[in-house]
Design a protein around this nucleic acid. Structure first.
Length: 225
DNA sequence: CACTGATCATGT
DNA sequence: ACATGATCAGTG
């Protein structure tokens, strides 16, 4: 696999992202010497890692933005033929303990979403993985209304966590941000706060952006907003 | 058929 | 277990 250096400026990153727009996964994978799997069933993160490699993001599991020196997080987003998101977007794990005093301004969610480079990709399963196209990049920062929506949901959801109501949490809570399981499987365990304030074993949860929210980001870009 | 809950791969 | 990258798939 060819090594690609990390872009040193936002402009250079955007230039690279624009350069791969219009390629199929097969075309980009060949350039990079990467094998395209038959489907994503056992390679759910493959598209994200393909784009990371192409744009020079460091691979790995480090808990920081993809382009920390640029303050930019990279996200691929699968869309249908109408340009509408096919999936929610994972943001970060929810802190289920040691979270008293954490406010929105210092939250992982706010930090991760402060600046995101979205790469729309074709995601419909009827299209063979190799033949799916990469779309044009969208560099996004939340506007004041979007940040207010995120903050309101984050604060509501964190209240459940801090007040020992994790057992009452489900994916229906939150207008634009939701909490859903995030782990190897339903047997995954982490520490949380119980209804009497005690430490309990519970399912790890992650913050996800609802499709309606990311759809607005993509739509605003098309409208030149 | 959209959505929530479940799941997969990999590195630390 | 937790962080990265996400999509799968049963069901209301």
């Amino acid at each position: 696999m060819r090594n690609i250096n990390s872009p040193q400026t936002e402009q250079a990153l955007l230039q690279r992202a624009n350069a791969i727009a219009g390629l199929t996964f097969a075309e980009l994978a060949e350039e990079l010497g990467i094998i395209v799997p038959p489907d994503l069933k056992r390679d759910k993160g493959w598209v994200g890692q393909l784009i990371e490699t192409a744009l020079g993001a460091k691979a790995g599991s480090k808990p920081e933005q993809d382009f920390a020196h640029l303050g930019i997080e990279l996200k691929t987003i699968p869309i249908n033929s109408n340009g509408y998101p096919l999936e929610t977007t994972f943001v970060s794990l929810a802190p289920l303990v040691q979270n008293s005093g954490v406010d929105w301004q210092h939250s992982h969610v706010k930090h991760k979403l402060s600046k995101v480079l979205w790469i729309p990709v074709q995601g419909e399963r009827q299209i063979p993985l190799a033949e799916r196209y990469i779309g044009s990049p969208i560099l996004w920062q939340p506007n004041s209304r979007q940040e207010q929506q995120l903050r309101r949901d984050w604060e509501e959801l964190m209240d459940y966590i801090v007040l020992g109501k994790v057992a009452q949490i489900n994916g229906t809570l939150g207008d634009v941000l939701q909490l859903r399981p995030k782990g190897a499987n339903s047997r995954a365990i982490t520490k949380g706060i119980g209804k009497n304030g005690e430490m309990i074993d519970t399912l790890p949860l992650g913050f996800y952006l609802r499709k309606e929210f990311t759809a607005e980001i993509l739509q605003n870009f098309l409208l030149g907003k």
